[in-house]
Amino acid sequence: MARLDAPRRITLGAALVVIAAVVLLLGFIVWRGVQLFVVSGVPVTQILSPTWQPDPLSEGTTYGLLPFIAGTLAVMVVAAVVSTPLSVGLALFMAEVAPTWARRIAQPAMEVFVGIPSVVYGWLGLTILVPFLRVHFGWLGFATGFSWLAGSLVLALMILPTITSISYDAFVAVPADMRSASLALGTTRWQAIRHVVLPAAATGVATAIVFGLTRAAGEALAVQMVIGNAPVIPTSLARPVTTLTSQITLDMSDATGTWNEALWTMGLVLLLISLAFVLLIRWLGRGRSQA
């Protein structure tokens, strides 16, 4: 009997590697992330300070993570605000409006979009978007072009295929006879979309946006290349800001001691943010399966 069960045990073992990876990952990140408080004795409340002064060579260090957390949220939210209308619109187009030939162009195009690596987006932002903002919108305060807006626009492009493909699935999952029912009552196609398809797919679209936010919050290199990396609380779309991921990317190889520990704490904060998103997505999914 035990021999018969061998395949089951081997495949289970492979699946369990995923759990092992998560446990190890959580363990290492939490352990390294709390060193700042446990070993260096920095008060936990200090990370909520708006002041980031990690350099031990200057007087009085302060490990305020607020600029990074606020920057991450600010860049992420604006990216989603820019990207959502385009992505959901494109998903609606592909699911509801597009004739077959247009769908045959749009679908592979989305796959190409997904395939472009993030450093390439960062490089594009650096060589095209940043100079463009500097030259044409300098009068609006884009002194260098490196800015909150530049980061958000690059991210908006990167999360577009994510939001598009998940909302597309949500629209396609709305049964065809719901649309026919609406049309048979004499509504226009847009009325059917607006009053039947969109409400029925609302949870799916919300899930798509959360997936987009998740990706936006976690993207590192592309954002780091265009955002200016100034550890300040974001106040203007035209000014440089920074994010958790950017700062880790920039400082990790050089920072030592308590400074380094603070970077691990940033990693822990990122982990908690993604955990929150996973739980949010699960919660949205549960609502859908009950409805």
């Binding site: 995923v18 759990i19 998560v22 990140i29 976690g218 990122l270 982990l271 993604s274 998103f277």
Partner: peptide, 12 residues
């Protein structure tokens, strides 16, 4: 675990 790793930032 699958969902968590999928949404943890690659830098983390």
């Amino acid at each position: 675990s699958q969902e968590l790793i999928s949404s943890v930032p690659s830098i983390v």
